[in-house]
């Protein structure tokens, strides 16, 4: 997954999705959001529709350009009827079907104009069921990746690289690489803390920071605090499911 540079981040749960639906400038925000989750969309196209990676990239590029820039995708979303994540995936599915139709039509009549999705198709997307696990796993990966990126950047900009170091040493590295957490007395030596207690408190601080940034990332596409909590719980469930 390509590493993305942290950008200015909303301090409130002001959803990028709502901004995207409300303003012309919001289309840039939606473009940014779609680009951020492009790896999840790409993985879905490759795995579920069996596209070659370069085909998936081309289709995605077209999808983002058309949906975010031309159609303003979010004006079609009825967010009372489903999650943004599910809505987006179903719109992508429909876009893919249109793409196939277009290819087929172009073979017969090359000058025929592009086919757009009807409102009925958007409505169907809004109420589509959950359950595309590979997509959801990649989405969860992108969310966590983004939160970690932001945390590393925030630790650096606030002159607390120790918080990032402790978080990696005690949480991320043991989880990803199966290593034993570095003992607190070693962290004391490495980061110059006065006591192991201080090191353990730095870990608490770093975990809280990660929790806050995780909510900020999900808050970019969730409606409110309640939906943020639900989304995090749902992603956790999806990621914990053995078959995911």
């Amino acid at each position: 997954m390509a590493r993305m540079q942290p950008v200015d981040f909303p301090t409130t749960h002001w959803s990028l999705v709502d901004r995207a639906a409300a303003t012309r400038g919001g289309r840039d925000a939606l473009g940014e959001l779609l680009t951020r989750y492009a790896p999840a969309l790409r993985a879905y196209l490759v795995r579920s529709h069996r596209l070659q990676p370069d085909e998936a990239d081309d289709l995605l590029q077209e999808f983002i350009l058309q949906k975010a820039v031309r159609d303003n995708l979010m004006t079609h979303a009825d967010r009372r009827r489903g999650r943004f994540r599910t809505f987006l995936l179903t719109v992508l599915d429909n876009f893919y079907v249109s793409h196939l139709r277009r290819q087929h039509a172009q073979r017969r009549a090359p000058s025929r104009p592009l086919v757009s999705l009807s409102q009925t198709e958007y409505d169907a997307a809004s109420s589509a069921p959950e359950g595309r696990s590979s997509f959801d796993v990649e989405w969860g990966r992108a969310v966590i990746d983004r939160a970690l990126d932001l945390m590393e950047a925030e630790c650096a900009s606030s002159d607390r690289p120790d918080l990032w170091g402790v978080f990696v040493a005690r949480v991320v590295d043991p989880i990803l690489n199966g290593r034993e957490p570095i003992p607190y007395d070693q962290l004391v030596a490495e980061f110059g803390y006065p006591t192991p207690s201080t090191a353990s408190n730095a870990l608490v601080t770093s975990k809280r920071m990660f929790a806050r940034l995780l909510r900020c990332v999900v808050g970019e596409y969730a409606r409110d605090d309640e939906e943020i909590e639900e989304e995090i719980l749902l992603l956790r469930k999806i990621l914990s499911t053995p078959s995911a």
Partner: peptide
Amino acid sequence: MSINLIDAEPGQLAQILDVGSKPS
């Protein structure tokens, strides 16, 4: 010291998510 999640298993991602979702 950026973290690479490309090869992380879903279960590992769930554990990282837990860090941020269970303050207690």
